[in-house]
Design a protein around this nucleic acid. Structure first.
Length: 720
DNA sequence: AGCACGCCGACT
DNA sequence: GTCGGCGTGCTC
């Protein structure tokens, strides 16, 4: 490579960077954003480093434009390369996640505002004088603002502009990011919080890589503690990324960050409007956005000087991206931390086994908070043995739970029923022929949603009208709903407590403004019985809530997935933690058919460490993560037999290697998804094995034909 | 990811 | 006889 050619990484699944000629007199260092021709198109890429031989006998095309933007840092480029090689994908696919801000390359936008010029209008009508008076005091205003403030029509303002009585002023289109006030909403910390904050500040002060696991029970005030670390990182001149698992959370959270730091933080997730995305993207790139609260993709923003990454609720499965590049944002945050020499804080009340093991091994600093902040007590948890509960058919609430709810409502308090199942019934059967309503494109049942009057596939989103007759035997009125969803539990609650003010909180019914409205109603005590899916488990503060009932605690344990225990613990602990935050004490009642299960007994004893210790031992003896590593290979295609043949052929050519086991071929957990048949191979490897090299060697010269596809998922979330 | 090139069904 | 369906392969 000579100095008049550059390699440019493009946001596509290409082998590597492509080489281009630079026009005379134009320079472009690695990290520069460049517009280049590709085929018939003109595309955006980033100048990459590392000597690369341009293909022989190919005339290089010329770079069209080099953008005047802060370059993508060396750290970020190495991060992209690292992620690509870890997840066995093209670096361009990773770069695409960095460039997802259409318009950010068109340069800062400008707005036209107006000010009185001092020139007198030819006809000084009362309306015109009103406009001019407003335009001569304070900030320049946009035409529409002037019009509204003066209460005049558009033509009045237009006329004044035409006569030169108003002169145009260009304002920067995007509001600049304010400087955080590090003391703005500083709350007094408990002694324990102060100790934890000191440890985290020490981590920041070292100005190097380093991960802390901030492990504190629900309500222990973790947030205020990591806010202290954020303040320290910002004081040191760094930017801070605060990752949250779900976008539903961020509105509430943004308000809290704003109170603490006296400014609206940058906000990044897939639903943020393009205009705001551009602003955040540019603010992150030029270093002016000091705090960004975002979903997992925010990690790929072009950080200028990242000084701290906080991963809140680090155990959340939502951090694993399932489509596109299947990366785990918590794990990649740790990688970024090590590449960028910037600290990371993983926060959770129920850390993942992976993080707990890392803390145990001393790789992460373990910072614990044991006490609930303020007076609120952890709720007392009891089990209800459902084997003893004689339930009438079509009912799901045992007598002890039903009575407790009645008493809670009668006392003027709030109760919450938790069931992690959307819709009315998870299964619909024909009582005459046994036919089960099924998604035509997936091997999954259609779920009845009575509220929406629809049947819905929870895997592909396929909808169908609620059937009156069995689609198979055509018997009328023979279809019966089986099992409960939140809507059905709400129906039971309505008949048991006709005076209760019930709210159903479920991701398909309550989103955005609707959800915010519901939560406000809950806080204002306008609702006294909340029935919800995992949506209610997350971070909301319900001050009047004193009773939490878990309708079916066994759901995730029954699937046989080794992660079921960890997940069940996390969600029950989280949802139980919603009770008793108002200082009046809380109670959690857990309905289970497995009251002797170690999870249930530990839950009642509040012995998280004991239970997680047992789970770790099981993982070790089963050779599962975090002790051995996994990769899933999914072979999919629209033709059933061709898919199976390819999967089996692939299995047959798996290289033998010490410390590597290949399991399968087996039908994937969802054997048919969106009309594609899926087979799965699972690779288990000892930690010393270079899993990527093994997979690469195996799949090197396999090129699936037609609709067939091979997808690799390194560190799959589902072990099953 | 696009976009062009290429080979088989319903139309002015 | 053509327009157009989307399968496959290439882009420095």
């Amino acid at each position: 490579m000579t100095n008049d050619t550059v390699d440019v990484l493009l946001p596509y699944a290409l082998e590597g960077a492509y080489s281009y000629r630079l026009p005379a007199g134009v320079a472009a260092a690695p990290g520069a954003y460049a517009q280049v021709p590709l085929g018939t198109r003109s595309v955006l890429g980033v100048v990459w480093d590392g000597a690369r031989e341009p293909p022989e006998g190919k005339a290089l095309r010329q770079v069209e434009h080099v953008f005047d933007l802060p370059p993508l840092t060396e750290t970020h480029r190495r991060f992209i390369d690292w992620v690509a090689s870890y997840y066995l994908t093209a670096p361009g696919n990773v770069l695409r996640m960095v460039l997802r801000a259409p318009g950010a390359f068109e340069g800062p936008r400008q707005r036209i505002a107006y000010q009185a010029s001092g020139i007198e209008p030819r006809r000084p009508t009362p309306q015109r004088l009103r406009v001019l008076r407003i335009a001569s005091e304070g900030m320049p205003l946009m035409a529409r603002e002037l019009q509204e403030l003066a209460g005049v029509g558009a033509s009045v303002v237009k006329g004044l502009i035409g006569e030169g009585a108003l002169k145009a002023v260009l304002l920067p289109g995007d509001a600049p990011f304010a400087t955080p006030d590090l003391e703005a909403g500083h709350l007094p910390l408990s002694r324990e919080q102060e100790r934890a904050a000191r440890e985290l500040r020490a981590l920041i002060a070292r100005r190097g890589a380093g991960v802390a696991l901030l492990d504190g029970v629900t309500g222990s005030g973790k947030t205020e503690v990591y806010f202290e670390a954020m303040a320290a990182a910002i004081a040191g001149g760094g930017q801070v990324l605060l990752l949250l698992p779900e976008i539903a959370l961020t509105q509430q959270f943004l308000a809290r960050v704003e109170r603490r730091f006296g400014l609206a933080p940058g906000h990044w997730h897939s639903d943020v409007r393009p205009r705001e995305r551009e602003r955040v993207w540019r603010g992150v790139a030029d270093g002016t956005a000091k705090i960004v609260v975002g979903a997992r993709s925010a990690l790929f923003l072009p950080w200028a000087r990242l000084g701290l990454i906080v991963v809140d609720e680090e155990h959340e499965p939502a951090y694993k991206q399932e489509d596109g590049v299947p990366y785990h944002a918590r794990d990649m945050a740790v990688v970024y931390s090590s590449l960028a020499k910037c600290p990371a804080i993983l926060a959770s009340a129920t850390p993942s086994l992976e993080s707990l093991l890392n803390a145990e091994k001393g790789k992460y600093r373990h910072v614990r908070l044991h006490n609930r902040h303020g007076r609120a007590e952890l709720p007392k948890t009891s089990l209800i043995d459902m084997r003893q509960a004689k339930l009438a058919s079509g009912t799901w609430l045992s007598e002890p739970l039903a009575e407790a709810i009645g008493a809670t409502l009668a006392a003027g308090d709030q109760a919450l029923l938790f069931l992690n199942r959307r819709g009315y019934a998870p299964l619909t059967l024909c009582r005459r022929c046994g036919h089960r309503l099924q998604c035509p494109q997936c091997s999954a049942a259609l779920i009845e949603h009575r509220f929406r009057r629809q049947l819905l596939c929870h895997f592909c989103g396929h909808t169908a009208p609620v059937a009156q007759a069995c689609p198979d035997c055509h018997a009328e009125g023979s279809l019966v709903p089986c099992g409960p969803g939140v809507e059905r539990v709400a129906e039971e609650a309505r008949s048991r407590y006709p005076d209760a003010r019930i709210a159903i909180l479920s991701s398909d019914l309550t989103r955005g403004a609707n959800l915010r409205g519901m939560l406000t109603a809950v806080v204002k005590n306008e609702v006294n019985l909340i029935i919800g899916t995992q949506l209610v488990a997350k971070g909301h503060n319900f001050p009047h809530l004193t009773l939490v009932g878990v309708v079916d605690a066994d759901l995730a344990l029954e699937t046989g997935d080794p992660r079921g225990g960890e997940r069940t613990w996390a969600i029950i602990a989280q949802v139980a933690g919603r009770a008793g935050r108002g200082g009046r004490g809380g109670v959690a009642m857990v309905q289970t058919y497995l009251p002797q299960h170690p999870l249930m007994t530990s839950l009642v004893a509040g012995d998280r460490d004991g239970y997680f210790g047992q789970e770790l031992a099981i993982r070790a003896s089963a050779g599962l993560p975090p002790y051995r590593r996994l990769a899933a290979i999914v072979v999919s295609g629209s033709d059933a037999s061709a898919t199976e043949r390819l999967a089996k052929a692939l299995r047959a050519r798996a290289p033998m290697a010490q410390g590597v086991d290949v399991l399968g071929t087996a039908p994937a957990p969802i054997h048919l998804l969106r009309g594609r048949h899926r087979w799965r191979l699972l690779v288990k490897a000892d930690p010393a094995i270079n899993l990527q090299a093994y997979l690469k060697a195996w799949l090197a010269d396999v090129t699936p034909k037609g609709s067939l596809r091979i997808d690799i998922d390194v560190d799959p979330y589902n072990f099953l």
